[in-house]
Amino acid sequence: EVTIKANLIFANGSTQTAEFKGTFEKATSEAYAYADTLKKDNGEYTVDVADKGYTLNIKFAG
């Protein structure tokens, strides 16, 4: 089991951190699915992958 950390960075400057656990593939998939649910209210997003994929910096356009 691994932990994927998602740093969520919103257009208004606020930030939030979420963690997803499971296999690497499952946790990564859940992180992207979570970002997709936030897209409606926060706009499109870009992802900067860090720490060999264990950290995702997800920035929303607003």
Rank of each mutant, 00 (worst) to 15 (best):
A50K: 11
A33S: 11
G22V: 00
L56Q: 01
D48K: 08
V2R: 05
T37N: 13
Y54S: 05
F20S: 01
I58T: 01
G13T: 08
F10L: 09
G53S: 04
V2S: 07
F10Q: 03
F10W: 11
A50G: 10
I58L: 06
I9G: 06
G22M: 02
Q16T: 14
N42R: 11
A33G: 09
T46P: 00
T15M: 13
F24T: 05
G62T: 11
G22H: 02
T3E: 06
A61C: 05
K39H: 04
T55Y: 06
E44T: 12
V2K: 05
I4W: 02
K59H: 14
K5Q: 10
T15F: 13
A11N: 10
G53R: 02
T46H: 08
T15C: 05
A27D: 00
I4L: 07
S29Y: 09
I4H: 00
F10V: 03
F10P: 01
E25G: 06
F20W: 06
Y45L: 02
G43V: 02
A50M: 10
I58C: 03
A18N: 14
T23C: 05
I4N: 00
N42W: 15
T37E: 11
T55E: 11
K21N: 15
T3L: 12
T15R: 11
Y32I: 14
D51K: 04
K59T: 13
G22A: 07
I9H: 12
V49S: 10
K39T: 08
F20G: 00
I4P: 00
I58P: 00
D41K: 12
G22Q: 02
L8G: 01
E25A: 07
N42K: 10
D48M: 11
K40Y: 09
S29A: 13
G22N: 05
G53W: 02
G13P: 01
A27C: 04
A50Y: 12
K21A: 12
N42P: 01
S14N: 10
K40S: 06
F20A: 01
Y34Q: 03
A33V: 07
A50I: 12
V47F: 05
V49T: 11
F20K: 01
Q16E: 07
T55A: 06
Q16W: 08
N42V: 06
L8W: 04
V47L: 05
L38I: 09
G43A: 03
K39Q: 09
T37G: 11
T37L: 09
I9W: 15
T55D: 03
N57P: 00
G22L: 01
A33Y: 08
G62E: 09
T15I: 14
E30R: 06
V47K: 02
N7F: 11
F60N: 00
D48G: 13
T55N: 06
T55L: 13
A35T: 03
E19R: 08
S14I: 13
Y34I: 04
T46L: 09
F60G: 00
T37F: 09
K5V: 13
T15L: 15
L56T: 01
N12Y: 07
N42A: 14
E44W: 08
Y45Q: 01
K40W: 08
A61I: 08
V47N: 02
A27Q: 02
G62V: 08
I58H: 00
F10S: 03
G43C: 03
A61D: 09
K40N: 09
